[in-house]
Write a protein that binds this DNA or RNA. Structure first.
Lengths: 234, 234
DNA sequence: ATTAAATTGTGTCATTCTAACACTAAAAAC
DNA sequence: GTTTTTAGTGTTAGAATGACACAATTTAAT
């Protein structure tokens, strides 16, 4: 069966951009590439789509094989297709993206696979057009975090308002007023007070909230105008 | 040169979703497919990426070949990759998207290529997963038009505020208060009064504005919270 | 035990933004 | 010149926003 005899078959790659938060910095999961070309250089987690595999399944498979991370919800971002982007052979690459809480996942597995969490500022030079992919993903994160409460995914299941604020301050690299942040956040009705308090505090213990998952889903597409207006012009 | 001997080469297609506005309805540009499989059925403008062609260039080429439309600014949307999405052969399809003003472009060329502008409501059944692509693109349009002034691209270079309002009412399928719309719009500072009045009116002539292209570029990433709040929850 | 230091939690108030609403002005048709 | 249709603008009450200050809780140090 060959309905399209003249068309060119092309390698289809998948690259995964994984953001994590450790309570202080936003980090990027990177790996040292162990095959040619560019063997030994830093890279996103990448591989090729199998013959009968959905793109999304491919992303999950590649991520698991390269880092040991399981059950990661990845979202498709954009496809890169400059003719010369991979010097080895013409390759089109579909980029996937995920936000995870670093502490929720097995850091031993990550280490044993030669993958590393690296802060955004300290990230090394990456192969091919991976730097461009990362830049776009950061843009995407900034853009969307201001509108949707996606930041929750970078935090533990139970989290405090100050934690979430630190996350937003890390994403936007600005200070946010504690009182206004809290008011705005609680007014969304998306947080449920678990009744517990944070224990790893050396001062006043903060209330632990969890996300109201149903409302979150229902409200996801509502534009959650979350950042102070001063951010809107950036 | 074959650095990746085991990987599968796959057909990479491009499909183009073109939205247009005729002053009343939002329309979709569709074409009757003239090759097998599914020959004669309605489809998006599609084709395969050439061996040494960027994805973006491919989209522009395909659009020109199939519709005669030139100089269309297309934007990449998403890539579809279910293993069985094209029954002819495994194909990954990158979807591109554009907004154009129907009257700015050569409708003869479009007609002579067997392409048609069809209102969203009246769109026929489409091949493969094209319906899903269109649904996503409509979502994308609704989502983004509320935040950015992208609607301008669907209008002539010089347009009136009531025209723009009709466009937004068509996108969201809701009535918008004329007074509040006008106030909000003018307060963005993106409109320049051309000093001229609309001539094809049978009643009071409306002021023709043009877009302040520089401010538009600079402000594009500012979240233009444009729709009434009542929309935000949809 | 008291105090100091750090962090959480909440209240106020002036300003701005929003949505709802009603009238006047211009142009063409008759 | 009267009617019809559409464009253009002003007001006002209520909500949301941003700037700000103080009280409460916890641990560590003395």
């Amino acid at each position: 069966m060959n309905n399209y005899p003249q068309a060119t078959r092309i390698l289809v790659a998948i690259d995964c951009i994984i953001f994590g938060f450790d309570g202080k910095d936003i980090k990027l999961l990177l790996i040292k590439r162990n095959f040619e070309p560019e063997k030994g250089k830093w890279s996103l987690m990448g591989g090729f789509v199998n013959a009968d595999e959905d793109l999304h399944d491919g992303a999950v498979r590649i991520l698991y094989n390269l880092t040991g991370l399981k059950d990661i919800y990845v979202e498709q971002l954009e496809t890169y297709g400059k003719a010369d982007r991979d010097p080895g052979e013409r390759t089109v690459s579909v980029v996937f993206f995920a936000l995870i809480n670093i502490d929720d996942h097995d850091s031993e597995a990550v280490k044993s696979h030669n993958a590393s969490w690296i802060t955004l500022d300290a990230r090394p030079q990456l192969i091919f057009d991976h730097e461009q992919m990362v830049a776009r993903a950061i843009e995407h994160l900034k853009y969307n975090a201001a509108l949707h409460p996606i930041g929750f995914e970078l935090l533990p299941e139970r989290f405090t308002i100050p934690q979430l604020q630190k996350l937003y301050e890390a994403i936007y690299n600005i200070p946010i007023d504690r009182r206004n942040f809290s008011r705005k956040l609680l007014s969304t009705g998306l947080l449920i007070d678990t009744g517990y308090k944070n224990n790893n505090s050396t001062t006043k213990k903060a209330t632990l909230y969890k996300l109201d998952a149903e409302k979150y889903k229902a409200k996801f597409h509502s534009f959650w105008n979350f950042m102070p207006d001063s951010m809107k012009s950036n």
